[in-house]
């Protein structure tokens, strides 16, 4: 349960960060940023995928991971871990793009990357613990079979 709460919290923070970037993209509001890199990155040609803001994709990803944390069970754990892996790898690609192609770093993007990186071990730990949680149910099944039957 604690893992699910941790995952939900981190995913919620990620949704807040990417939600803000998405809002700025669509409203044209000034982006609050400690450096000039945010504007440069957010206005680059890598900030959209065929017209869809990357920030929006990030928001959807974090919301999906948050959703898996709200659902119990090994399938939800696997889905959360899979989504976290996608987010981690794609964030890595975007970080390389910032360094190599855009030559600027967006502070908000790095914050989102850090949250994504944190989600990966959390979701994987959940998968492992959901596997351990599933094992006792099997053992209790064997136990009931091993229980002495009452003879009529």
């Amino acid at each position: 349960m604690r893992l699910r709460i941790a995952i939900a919290t981190v995913a919620g923070l990620g949704a807040a960060v990417t939600g803000y970037l998405t809002l700025v993209h669509y409203t044209g509001a000034r982006l609050v940023c400690p450096t000039s890199g945010c504007e440069v990155v957010q206005r680059s040609r890598y900030a959209e995928l065929f017209g869809v803001p990357v920030a929006l994709l990030g928001l959807l990803g974090f919301v999906a991971i948050l959703g898996t944390a709200l659902v119990s069970g090994p399938e939800a754990a696997q889905a959360g871990a899979g989504l976290a892996l996608v987010a981690f790898l794609f964030s890595g690609y975007l970080l390389v793009v910032q360094l190599v192609a855009i030559h600027a770093i967006c502070t908000w993007c790095v914050t989102s990357d850090a949250l994504t990186t944190l989600l990966l071990p959390l979701t994987w730990l959940r998968v492992r613990s959901s596997g351990r949680d599933a094992a006792p149910a099997a053992r209790s099944g064997r136990g009931s079979l091993a229980a002495p039957r009452l003879l009529p």
Binding site: L57, Q78, A81, G82, V86, L89, Y93, V127, R128, G131
Partner: peptide
């Protein structure tokens, strides 16, 4: 259950490649 299933990992890698 247990470690991330191969299928989920493979799907994740394919999705990243597409993105």
């Amino acid at each position: 259950s247990g470690p991330l299933s191969v299928r989920v990992a493979a799907i994740a890698v394919v999705v990243v490649a597409v993105l």
